[in-house]
């Protein structure tokens, strides 16, 4: 399997956010909302940090 970095990141975020949502919240609605929040947080922070590191020469 030869995923790109972003694809691997997205799959990682999806699976981890599923588990985090399931074990930290009680009701299905809360679990879904928290899972979606964690998923987009993973993606957003990765893109942000990627752009912050982009001008670094080393």
């Amino acid at each position: 399997m030869n995923l790109s970095h972003f694809e691997a990141l997205a799959v990682f975020a999806l699976l981890v956010s599923t588990v985090f949502g399931l074990i930290t919240k009680k009701t299905p609605r809360e679990q879904f909302r928290y899972g979606v929040f964690v998923f987009f947080s993973f993606i957003g922070v990765a893109i942000l940090v990627g752009w912050l590191m982009y001008p670094l020469p080393w």
């Binding site: 399997m1 995923l3 691997a8 799959v11 990682f12 699976l15 981890v16 599923t18 588990v19 399931l22 074990i23």
Partner: peptide
């Protein structure tokens, strides 16, 4: 909850091996 945990953790393991 159990099935979703099994799917998420199992898939993650399979992806890790496949990668």
């Amino acid at each position: 909850r159990g099935v979703l945990l099994a799917l998420a953790i199992g898939l993650m393991f399979l992806f890790g091996i496949a990668m």
